[in-house]
Design a protein around this nucleic acid. Structure first.
Lengths: 190, 190
DNA sequence: CTATACATGTAACAAGTTACATGATTAA
DNA sequence: TTAATCATGTAACTTGTTACATGTATAG
């Protein structure tokens, strides 16, 4: 149910096509809820059938522009009000970090350096977006400024954490030393 | 492919049953990659069939204890080395924050207060875990100390961000003002 | 003896990804 | 004229969730 509410939010803020949405997603909501076009188009069809969005325009190459209806806004509101948030987080890149001890320390450091470069890219993009947009213009913009600020802080923190972790590894945190429970003969034979 | 590698990591560190894993997940890896027991048990069966883990013990009530094999460790290593990380993040709770402008400001503030309480709970749990465990004991422990530190910083930052956002909202960030594009007559009729 | 926690599994469904498929417009 | 981008969709597959289903040991 998450994707549909993200679409309702975006289409309440600005009329857009599926194509627009899939691009816009990657720089805004996509930071907390990614979506491909193959998921967006069928969902737009469903939302239209349910009257939560409506096609209010068209363009070249079969382009269809949608907007959220009053019913859609009501659905969005009741989602926030009546269903409990899911506080879980999925972040494959950090799952990998759990496993970093299986690599030699220098390789682990190189691994983190690649992560860091990626997060710097994200942060730069966010910083540029913050600078480029007039956030005071209206309610929707001022609201999404709050979310993008979270992104800015998150990636800043992530980079800071990598620098700290790299220091720890350089100081020997991933060096074998002390027993590694579980890697007994029985396990090796399995 | 993420879950299986998480399991390989945990079962390399310590022999565990599916039941142990599902509980342990919720306080360690589950912070970045949640998993239910209904997903864990079938995956353990597959991993066993592929020789990446092996059952090395049993217990009361049909309990089965597994450990990662050398082949499993090799698979984990090559996952880190040979497949590109997925840097995307899924976080429903922050997607909801994008939509907060549809609520009256005081309701939005109450909404964030609930989020904050939840994150304080997470942070307290992490802080307690950091204090309770001997992280220097071995390689696997020292490694997961790096990951848990990320969790600590993440929830600290999230709480700080909520306090900032609440200030913004209290100062009128979610008050209507300026045009809300998209909510035109056409959309209302849809 | 009875409730709780331990313990493992399956089945039906929903959500998400990757690959396939097609075609129109625009800029070089 | 040709490559890139715009633009929409479907199909097969994988992953993840919720609900169902069963039974054992332990503590009060």
């Amino acid at each position: 149910m998450s994707l549909r509410h993200g679409l309702l939010d975006l289409l309440a803020g600005e009329p857009m096509s599926g194509y627009d949405l899939s691009r816009f997603f990657s720089v805004s909501m996509g930071n907390v809820w990614p979506a491909q076009h193959s998921q967006i188009y069928p969902e737009l069809a469903k939302l239209t059938a349910e009257g939560l969005i409506a096609q209010t325009g068209e363009g070249p190459r079969g382009r269809k522009v949608y907007q959220t209806t009053e019913a859609g806004l009501a659905a969005l509101r009741s989602w926030l009000r009546d269903s409990p948030p899911d506080y879980s987080i999925r972040q494959e890149a950090q799952l990998r970090v759990f496993c970093l001890w299986v690599l030699p320390p220098d390789e682990a450091l190189a691994y983190l350096a690649r992560d860091r470069a990626e997060y710097v890219r994200h942060l730069d993009l966010i910083t540029a977006t913050i600078a480029a947009v007039d956030w005071g213009e209206n309610q929707v913009r001022r609201s999404s400024r709050l979310s993008i600020e979270f992104g800015r802080r998150f990636y800043t923190e992530l980079i800071g954490w990598i620098d700290w972790a790299a220091e720890q590894i350089a100081a020997g945190a991933l060096q074998p030393g002390g027993p590694v429970p579980g890697l007994t003969a029985g396990a090796r034979l399995g």
